[in-house]
Amino acid sequence: MLENFSFRTIVEYLPLFGQGLVTTVWLSLISFAGALAVGIVLSAMNLQRGWLFRVPAKAYIDAVRATPLLAQLYFLYFGLPRLGFVLPELVVGILALSLNSGAYVAEIIRAGILSIPRGQVEAGVASGMTYVQRMRLVILPQAFKVTIPPLLGQAIVLVKDSALLSLISVAELTRAGQLLASDRFMPAEGFITIAAFYLLLYYCLKGLAALSGRWLGLQPARSST
């Protein structure tokens, strides 16, 4: 089998893979920024005591987590034009990834905020801070540290999920593998190569997670209560 494996073809297609990799990286970056924005808004809504914001946020998060990303992607890809929004594939893809990942990010942020001991809130309240001051000065800086590692985990998931955009013909990394597979009938070469590139991205993000862990470890631990 191995004698049939064509490294030459892979090398020949490297520029295409390179372009796909670059596209995957930047569309993931934009989508993750979008997911952070969506997640921050959703978690803020979800933490409200009144139901007016909380219930829609919870419903949205449940809906996203309960349905396949592929279904969500097709819903946007085929559904939006029907509603009169004709958008480029790439934009639809980034939108889908942001809206999907945002639901998970929202839960990560909410868990981070809820992990801050009640006494921290009370200390802020007792010194006359408003809700916004308490959040900004006391709760969020502490929650931020707790959420970095799981957020990077979510970023890894997002990079892998971005492969689905190949199905709406976005020229990202998986699409490059598909092209090699279908043009030259070399699925092994095509998909092993993209696997290697995904592994590379995975290790980059893992390295970042380790670095951030070490950086966060430099800060003193929370005081015992």
């Binding site: 006494g119 921290q120 009370e122 200390a123 007792a126 006391v138 003193p220 929370r222 005081s223 209560t225």
Partner: peptide, 12 residues
């Protein structure tokens, strides 16, 4: 001013 049993200093 309110002083708590468990101090509740801001750890960061």
């Amino acid at each position: 001013g309110f002083v708590f049993q468990s101090f509740n200093l801001y750890p960061h």
